[in-house]
Nucleic acid binder design. Structure first.
Length: 466
RNA sequence: GGUGCCAUCGCCAAGUGGUAAGGCCGCAGCCUGCAAAGCUGCUAUCCCCAGUUCAAAUCUGGGUGGCACCUCCA
């Protein structure tokens, strides 16, 4: 297994801290709104990573947090005159539902900020004790970036205070402009948590460090965890700050490998909630099968950016259709668990920093070869057995082809239409039987007018939603 | 202004020193009552310039263009 480490900026052979085990932590969403395609991509990338690691025999512990303490959540709660928890529960449930729709497995651990306050307090206390944090007169607690000689080594930035554009109103008592809040004191009664440092709210960067210590960290290794992942925009300042907190509060560094996924863009521009150009996952799911979205968002390399457009999405759909047509051809046959040459090659491609393009080209070649073999006369017992093992492996490691192929091709068609189509097909079969091809062709036109494709096979006539 | 990433066929996209994968589209053919599906065949010398090398899309230098981060962000 090889992983591109975005801190060392090179592809490195993956060596776990503990033989046979992997600890993986990914920064999850702040749940104040619906997830867009960018959130989906991030979740998909690390879902794929965990699957590939497992296929390589590693025992993986995968944690992805949910940030449920945040100013935007509070703002929304106040605006809608709702409880914070009402907001966060709603969007958490929606997030889970949408993740399931695109085949993202639930992480092993899903810590929430509200459930990790003790760990955060412990971390702050340590940092104050170690002289890496200080409290201002109004109660805020800041991390002292100057006290950490390794600060900025993660993102490799150059500290240049003179030219640093300070765009956020910050406390006059901050020792350095770069110092970031560990604890924000809040005087009013809006939303606060009781802590040893007074009433307030924790800083955003703190929760990840705290959750990692609480749920995943090795206590006796040079790194807390093996792999830390997240969107490319998190490298600075979020991950830089997380790394600083962990480094200064504990005896280990945060992560051995850092992975950052590229963005989903719209019209060449980053998709983000604040830019207001989000394409929400829930809307995409109304138009497309979740697996098509999964395929599309995973079809380009995880580190490169993806310019969202429906044309390419349609191409992904066509490509996935081919897999499902092969599945249809072998419908009802049992999956095998045996290893195949194809499976090994596929895993090898994916184990090279998740080279999805190579993996997909291997799948296309396998599909074409299998179809060709099945086209020749004979029973093809061996071919079928091998193919079912291949399909099973693709499902397991990539999450493609997990549905019933007939249902897959009926996405978005209501029952009344389905019934009508059945009747039309029946009538057409009768016309064909009677060799009344004119009527048969007229009926086909009727069938096609429902936006479906019709195909005659040795097993009967079927339609597929285009 | 600082830092970093990227530029491969009409479109999407691998490959990072050894002579350009794959998909979509298009064209031709096989199959089919006709179709669809499937299969077969055909289609690029890698943004520009200079250099290193027996050999470069792949390394170095210089351009040009695009994007991201430096502020909440996946």
């Amino acid at each position: 297994m090889y992983i591109y480490d975005s801190v060392q900026k090179t592809k490195r052979k993956f060596e776990p801290l503990v033989e046979g085990k992997v600890t993986l932590y990914v920064c999850g969403p702040t749940i104040y709104d619906d997830a867009h395609l960018g959130h989906a991509k991030s979740a998909l990338v690390f879902d794929l990573l965990s699957r590939v690691l497992r296929a390589n025999g590693y025992e993986v512990t995968y944690a992805r947090n949910i940030t449920d303490i945040d100013d935007k959540i509070i703002k929304k709660a106040i605006k809608q005159k709702k409880d914070i928890k009402t907001i966060t529960d709603f969007y958490t449930a929606a997030f889970h539902k949408e993740m399931q729709a695109i085949g993202v497995k639930h992480p092993d651990i899903e810590p929430k900020a509200t459930e990790s306050l003790d760990a955060m307090y412990a971390l702050i206390t340590k940092l104050i004790e170690n002289g890496h944090a200080y409290q201002t007169s109004n109660g805020d607690i800041y991390f002292d970036t100057k006290s950490d000689s390794k600060y900025l080594t993660l993102s490799r930035r150059v500290q240049n205070e003179d030219e640093r554009q300070e765009r956020v109103e910050s406390s006059k008592e901050k020792r350095n402009p770069a110092d970031f809040a560990l604890w924000k004191s809040v005087k009013d009664d809006s939303v606060t948590f009781k802590s040893p440092f007074g009433k307030g709210r924790p800083g955003w960067h703190l929760e990840c460090s705290a959750m990692i210590e609480k749920h995943l960290a090795y206590k006796d290794k040079p790194y807390a965890i093996d792999i830390h992942g997240g969107g490319a925009d998190l490298l600075f300042p979020h991950h830089e700050n997380e790394a600083a907190q962990t480094r200064c509060a504990t005896k280990h560094k945060l992560a051995n490998y850092w992975m950052h996924n590229g963005f989903v863009n719209i019209n060449g521009e980053k998709m983000s909630k604040s830019l207001g150009n989000s394409f929400f996952l829930k809307n995409a799911l109304r138009e497309y099968d979740g697996e098509v979205l999964r395929f599309y968002l995973l079809s380009s390399h995880y580190r490169s950016s993806l310019n969202f457009n429906t044309k390419d999405l349609e191409v992904s759909k066509k490509r996935l259709n081919k897999l499902y047509r092969l599945k249809k051809r072998l419908f009802g046959l049992p999956y095998g668990e045996e290893k195949t040459a194809f499976g090994e090659k596929l895993l090898e491609a994916l184990s090279d920093d998740l080279n999805i393009s190579s993996a997909l080209s291997l799948i296309d070649a396998m599909i074409a070869e299998t179809n060709e073999r099945l086209d020749t006369p004979g029973k093809h017992k061996e071919v079928k057995k091998e193919t079912m093992a291949n399909l099973g492996f693709i499902e397991k490691v990539l999450g493609f082809g997990v549905k019933n192929p007939y249902e897959y091709f009926q996405f978005g068609v209501d029952d009344a239409t389905k019934a009508k189509l059945s009747k039309l097909i029946e009538a057409r079969n009768e016309a064909k039987k009677a060799k009344d091809f004119q009527r048969s062709d007229t009926l086909r036109e009727d069938i096609l007018s429902y936006g479906v494709e019709l195909m005659d096979t040795p097993h009967g006539s079927f339609w597929e939603k285009v």
